[in-house]
């Protein structure tokens, strides 16, 4: 990667970071959603021991919806503020996707680890394999962020964009959630450990594939 690409990606990433630090809307929305969800789950599971499978399912459904609530906004906000055209003029599509994708990845990882950490602490869930747990949360976050960023860019110019972003992103993300639940439940002591490791490896492969496909598809629609 030559320096001009790096400069553009860094500029887009910093632009997103500065915008976020100015308003903190994405961070506040995702954090509040995470806290409310975990409190609701812990309240519902009061005095009950959750199995690893149920706990993994609850964690990933919460992360999925927290991601869908916060991440598509990075493209929708450009359209709402009318800054999309300036972005088109100043950077190449691949740089824009990578810059925004890296920012959404950072946001997704923070949200996922916050949510999973709070869930484990509040519900008192025991982690049997911390490495597998971390890998599953990280791999799942990468997959979620790239797919949701792409879906956000696809619906940015649509009339009913906020609702549509979730409607088109969820079916694409269900395979990711399936693998992520498989990997996380193994780390929480449920199911066979080798199967959970296979799911984690599948998740990493899926993350690489989705990150490879995303910029190309984004470049195809960016000038539309």
């Amino acid at each position: 990667m030559n320096s001009s690409w790096q400069r553009e990606i860094k500029a887009v990433f910093l632009k997103e970071l500065n915008s976020e630090l100015r308003t903190k809307s994405g961070l506040i929305t995702a954090s509040l959603f995470s806290v409310v969800t975990v409190v609701a789950l812990a309240y519902a599971a009061y005095n009950t021991s959750l199995s690893g499978t149920i706990a993994a399912g609850l964690i990933w459904v919460s992360i999925l919806f927290a991601t869908i609530v916060s991440i598509p906004r990075i493209f929708l906000i450009e359209e709402e503020l009318g800054t999309m055209d300036i972005l088109r003029l100043t950077a190449r599509p691949h740089s824009i996707f990578w810059g925004k994708s890296l920012f959404s990845l950072a946001q997704s990882i923070v949200t996922a680890f916050l949510l999973a950490g709070m869930f484990v602490a509040f519900v008192g869930q025991r982690i049997y394999d911390p490495t597998l747990f971390l890998v599953s949360i990280f791999g799942g976050s990468v997959c979620l962020s790239s797919a949701v960023t792409l879906c956000g860019s696809l619906v940015a110019q649509a009339a009913n964009r906020s609702a549509l972003a979730a409607a088109i992103a969820v079916p694409l993300l269900l395979p990711v959630v399936t693998m992520a639940v498989g990997a996380t439940r193994g780390s929480l002591g449920a199911g066979f450990h080798q199967q959970a490791v296979n799911c984690a490896l599948g998740l990493i492969a899926y993350a690489i594939a989705s990150q490879a496909i995303g910029p190309g598809l984004f470049a195809l629609v960016w000038k539309s």
Binding site: L150, C151, L154, A158, L164, I213, L220, V221
Partner: peptide, 23 residues
Amino acid sequence: ALRNSFPDPEKRAHFSGAYCLAS
């Protein structure tokens, strides 16, 4: 759902095509 959100045929072709490829 994505197709029906774009009245312009060229944009509809681009965005729904990209979603189809992503799927």
